[in-house]
Design a protein around this nucleic acid. Structure first.
Lengths: 225, 225, 225, 225
DNA sequence: CATGAATGAGTCTTCATTCAT
DNA sequence: AATGAATGAAGACTCATTCAT
């Protein structure tokens, strides 16, 4: 890795941390440069300005994100149910490994600046498309109940990104840490549970026996009826 | 309403619009003043600065939000299932009526600035507490299956706020408009469906017949098996 | 004069001095603000930026310049010869009173930036037009010899602006001071002399007896044949 | 010519173009390097910085300029009148061949920075001296009328450099192109005309018959009395 | 001979805020 | 209650220059 690449990477990392906690506009390039340990002007030099840095950050993340989804779709599975969960799994793992950047990008996508829209819209469409394919296939196969494709995607996507976008909330209110392996394991089970209840067709429900709540053993917040 | 109150209200409105689309730091008080049609210094005069404006905006929203939840909890219902859905309903309606402010506040809560934490943490705790009460009660009653309280709250809350926080996404990708009455009506049904599948205990599932998909008649995205 | 106007005027004055001696790009607004004794940001506040200051400076000068020429043309004269000289006289006096600004504007007009062109072209056309009218009239009347209008304008204009654009040269090399009344008086005579030799038709040369060289008495640089 | 010399020459050429249209301070060495197609640092390497480049540019031009004048003075002529016009001719031709550099240097000389003064003052003095010699000689010979030496030099020099310094003006307003051979030819005649009227003593005027206005045949802007 | 990474000083501009009116 | 002049700090960015390679 060349000197340039190393420095660039360090900059992106510093920017990620700062952007995530203070927001894009709330962070000055001076802070980024200082955190990286280089001169201010190097940011404009490498990325052509603060905005270039933002674009690099987002594009880089979204590209990786989409790649995970695409690879997941290509991977052969027993049925659409397993594929759907595998998609979530890969995306979750991907975001876990870069949870700060994930949080920042997901938040930034809630703004409606033209710039953001330009960067993200293609990816969002693609994401919808991929989920859509799998869902439709599953319904046709009879694996899934005849659910509304769009509402299901919205729900599913919402659940997948939730721990990262609402990282702060999850941590403060529930004392859970979405960047830790433990969390992922549990969250996977929750998703599976949800999917089995909401997605599966009645005929398939018995085939796919929902994983029993053995993960609840390390959770003390249950109320016995 | 006095002249002062009107001006203040107009300022808050302008700030809401701008903050929502460009973020807090991305908006200058100059823009707010100009959009309101008043002198810049009036913002510092009324709110003691930009930060004061932010606090007023958030506190005001969160207070109303909590009030809705509290009133919903106090309202007598046939069972916890109905109460839970009624809570969602009130919150949804509250947010629909001020969807811009909702979006902004929800997004701002994903930052981890100390200021934001100070403003929001009490409300978040209270929200968790209220949902918690209802969920636990429902489990004890036997209305709800013995689900994990915390995961369920996270999921439920995620679903409720999703259309407003991800307003941009929902609009661009699915061409739906969460601020329109039509949307609320449909979203209510989705929530009910979800709740019936995920929350209800087996014994109750028959009692509460899930509302059939008659809303799907205006939706063309179904795939028949 | 309001506080604003006074401050603005002071800024324009400071900018004139600095721009003239160091050029537009060679001068920082910090220097201008500091020389004016106000805060830096006031420049952007009043003129909308450094460029706005430049435009104000140039437009203001050029407007005054053209007004002199127009008034001179409107003033009734015995013949075109007197009018022509009167035009020069008024412009000279105008520039003498703001010789720094004159120098700066005249120099700036030798650049070919788009901005400058946009500001100046209209004025230059008008100037040509006014000179043109008088020259043509003079030729028709028989006051002037049938000279080339365009070459004559170029020559005449060159002579009029020379002392101000080449102020530095005139001062350093000839120890003359174009901003002093004395200079103007002498220069007027030179122009008259030039005009009588170059412009007047033979028939008129006798009528308008060239003013004898009595101004040469305070000049020691003559060589007797 | 070595590779070095070629690169240096290309740099000077690029600098000339940019300095002329945007001014010295308005041009960055980055632009110069980029236009030349070499690395930025090479400018500091070759010329010891931006200022060094400026000095090289000016000195080079002024040296050539003076050489022309000196050679003209040394060349034997029938009388001072012919010599004077020959001086103008050589200088005009010299500037025509490098009209961009001429324009830039002439404009730069209207600034009063210390640096510029240091570079130019010697040359200006020399120029004055050379013109002075010829003028005085001519007056003593009786070729020239007893004109004021200094005013005449100012006027003469002004006329000679005008087309190059005011290149933009001449082009935009009169649609003439001082860098084309055609222009030079016409301008030479204008100068001769001017000189015959302004400089020549009465006794000599008949000897040197002013060239009739045959150049006016391609000029349509004449007004017949 | 020529390059690219890196720097520090400096650029213009915008920010939120204050104060006298 | 509301304004507009004015400020100081901070914003992003560009500058010319250096140095190791």
């Amino acid at each position: 890795m060349s000197a340039t690449e190393t420095t660039k990477e360090k900059m992106l990392e510093a920017a990620t941390v700062l952007f995530t906690s203070k927001g894009y506009h709330g962070t000055s390039i001076r802070e980024i440069a200082s955190k990286t340990g280089v001169n201010i002007s190097l940011i404009s030099y490498y990325f052509g300005g603060k905005q270039g840095l933002l674009e690099a950050l987002m594009t880089d993340f979204l590209e990786g994100y989409m790649e995970e989804l695409e690879l997941a779709v290509k991977t052969p599975h027993h049925d659409s149910y397993e594929k759907m969960l595998y998609m979530a799994e890969r995306v979750l793992t991907f975001m876990k490994e870069r949870h700060l950047r994930a949080r920042f990008v997901l938040r930034e996508m809630t703004l409606d600046s033209t710039l953001i829209r330009e960067i993200t819209s293609t990816y969002l469409m693609k994401e919808k498309h991929l989920y859509s394919i799998v869902l439709k296939k599953g319904i046709q196969e009879g694996t899934f109940a005849p659910v509304s494709v769009q509402w299901t995607i919205m729900q599913f996507r919402g659940m997948v990104i939730m721990p990262y976008l609402h990282h702060q909330y999850v941590r403060e209110v529930f004392h859970l840490h979405p960047q830790q392996p433990h969390f992922i394991k549990m969250y996977r089970k929750e998703l599976r549970e949800w999917a089995s209840k909401v997605l599966l067709s009645d005929s398939k429900k018995e085939e796919h026996k929902a994983i029993p709540f053995h993960h609840t053993q390390h959770q003390a917040d249950f109320v016995q009826p």
